[in-house]
């Protein structure tokens, strides 16, 4: 395992950059309350729209709030959403996908029909509606985006479970008298953990963008809590005068999404490159 990991990285030295960036963002987001940062929600009307300086590394926004501090606190929101939402989708989606591939008859029909109905909807509109129903808050945005990602996870789980169900080891387990639950969770599930986890990385970047979009539209994380999408939206009003108020969070968002995509892509290539391993 360790040797495999080493060869994975020696072939892809460029991964140091995205991994480093993600680690930096995560570390800053977690330690934010203990860092010597200006208050991210404190407005300073004496110094609005100032350019980057020593006192304010990234300058200040329209209300004189420190952009560097806001970007770091905004990372906390992105972190919560991008971990929480895929987790909801992963657990509920995998469960539904497993049931829909194992059971037959009306249970499968109902599950598949529900998933199709959810997919027949622009996902952003779906998340938008759910957030409005639940009310805007970080938890509810996470929940709405999590529910939004269920059909995709269910499909992937089902597409990986179906070929496994016909294999000898399932037949062997059944012959040995294993229960349905045992077969599903001890025989099938471990064999599809890797593809599902790889997909989590892809979905994480989608979730960060989705949260940004919702906040940009003004229905995501409510102010004064800083979030990257919200910061970009607020800065838009003064784009001519202080482009950095929008551009800095935009660049941070871009780098984060790009890093997650690069890591996810490398993992996927690894998976297809070496087929035949146990996972």
């Amino acid at each position: 395992m360790a040797r495999k990991a080493r060869s994975f990285f020696t072939n892809r030295r460029y991964l140091i950059l995205p991994l480093g960036w993600i680690s930096l963002v995560v570390a800053l987001a977690i330690t934010a309350p203990w860092l010597p940062l200006p208050n991210p929600t404190e407005m300073d009307f004496a110094h609005p729209e100032s350019h980057p300086s020593f006192a304010h590394w990234f300058g200040t926004d329209l209300d004189g709030r420190d952009i560097f501090a806001r970007a770091i606190y905004g990372a906390r929101v992105s972190l919560i959403v991008s971990l929480g939402a895929p987790l909801i989708g992963l657990i509920a989606g995998t469960l539904l996908g497993l049931i829909a591939s194992y059971c037959s008859g009306w249970i499968r029909t109902i599950i598949l029909a529900c998933l199709d109905a959810m997919l027949a909807f622009p996902s952003l509109v779906f998340a938008l509606g759910l957030t409005v129903v639940l009310g805007p808050s970080v938890q509810n945005v996470t929940l709405a985006l999590g529910i939004m990602s269920i059909p995709a996870f269910a499909r992937i789980a089902r597409s990986h479970a179906l070929p496994l169900l016909g294999q000898e080891f399932v037949l062997a387990a059944r012959t040995a008298g294993a229960s349905n639950a045992y077969i599903l969770f001890r025989e099938i599930l471990p064999n599809m953990v890797m593809p599902l986890l790889t997909y989590v990385l892809t979905i994480m970047s989608v979730m960060i963008v989705a949260e940004g979009s919702l906040s940009f539209l003004g229905v995501g994380v409510p102010p004064p809590t800083p979030s990257w999408g919200g910061m970009i939206a607020e800065g838009r009003e003064a784009l001519e005068r202080v482009p950095h108020a929008s551009l800095i969070p935009a660049v941070i968002l871009f780098l984060t999404v790009l890093s997650l995509n690069l890591i996810g892509d490398a993992l996927r290539q690894e998976k297809f490159g070496h087929s035949g391993g146990l996972s």
């Binding site: 551009l247 968002l253 871009f254």
Partner: peptide, 18 residues
């Protein structure tokens, strides 16, 4: 293409406006 894929709609639109 991989790089452009990582830019969300609203960021790209904002850049073009700018």
């Amino acid at each position: 293409a991989f790089g452009v894929l990582a830019v969300p709609h609203f960021v790209l639109g904002l850049l073009l406006i700018l």
